[in-house]
Simulated scan of single mutants.
Amino acid sequence: MHKLKPITPLGAEEPQVDQIGTLTIAEVVDQALASVAAREGQLDAAQKALPLTLPGVGKSATQGDFAAFWTGPDQWMISADHDQHELLAAELKQIVGDTASVVEQTDGWCRFDVSGAALCDHFERLSNVPVRTMAAGDVIRGTVEHLGAFLWRLADDRMAVIAPRSSAASLHHALVAAARSVV
């Protein structure tokens, strides 16, 4: 019998947390992800069925156990606590039925939360995204170093970076190197 153990996107048993000066870079592994795309002519029906209000362009929303951010026309990424919603995509598909397409995304992405007083200085070294003008709840798809990623402003001093899981090590390296250049 196989004895499989889950690993983080960086390949460890526990999430990586780096403290560099005033910045903390934390690998986030406790969130389930699913993409939701409303089918043609079904946006209103999908919205009514879902447990949260879907945000507009460049925004995110949180309600109860769920958070969502806009990823494209009539498309969103929905997140929830993994322990409570391990089968998030299946749950959402039951809720929306034929009004939307739902795809499991949890293991396709990595997430790092960066927090601290030097947050904007840090991201200005990594990206051309206008981080200083982003308010809490704003989400922009851009590049971090050379990698495509979503930058999700969680608070004045906290940003989530969500990128393809296959890029986790490169993204982590870029985040740490930029943090060292700020201190």
Score class of each variant (00 low, 15 high):
P9Y: 05
A34M: 10
S167L: 06
G41I: 09
H146E: 03
N128A: 06
D113A: 12
V28R: 15
A118M: 07
L147D: 00
E124G: 09
A68C: 04
I140M: 08
F150C: 08
Q47S: 14
L87K: 12
E14Y: 11
H146L: 07
T24R: 14
A178K: 02
Q105W: 04
D30Q: 13
L54R: 12
S167M: 10
E145M: 07
G21I: 07
P164V: 02
P130R: 15
L52C: 01
P73C: 01
R39N: 13
T24N: 07
H2A: 15
S60A: 15
A155G: 13
L92H: 06
L171T: 03
K5V: 13
L50M: 14
K3T: 12
A32C: 06
Q75K: 15
A89D: 08
H146R: 13
A45N: 11
A100P: 06
A169G: 01
A168F: 06
I95F: 01
A160T: 06
V57A: 14
D65Q: 04
G116M: 03
E14N: 12
F66V: 07
G58W: 03
V36Y: 02
W70T: 07
L151C: 12
R125L: 15
D65T: 01
A80W: 10
P164L: 06
L154H: 08
A168I: 10
H122W: 02
A12Q: 11
V57L: 10
G137C: 08
A149S: 10
V29S: 12
A45G: 02
I162T: 11
K59F: 03
L151Y: 03
L151P: 01
H2L: 13
Q63S: 12
L87R: 12
H172W: 08
L92P: 04
R165E: 05
M1E: 06
T53H: 08
V96Q: 04
A12F: 05
H173N: 08
G108K: 10
Q75S: 15
S127Y: 03
L92S: 05
A80M: 09
H146P: 00
G64C: 06
W76Y: 04
L147P: 00
G21C: 08
Q94K: 15
T106W: 09
L171P: 00
P55T: 08
L10V: 04
D98Y: 06
Q63V: 02
Q31C: 03
L171M: 13
G64Y: 12
A178V: 06
R165Y: 01
A46Y: 04
L151R: 08
A163Q: 06
V144D: 00
V139R: 04
I78Y: 03
D83Y: 05
S127D: 00
Q75P: 07
A118G: 09
A117P: 02
D113E: 15
L119P: 02
A177V: 09
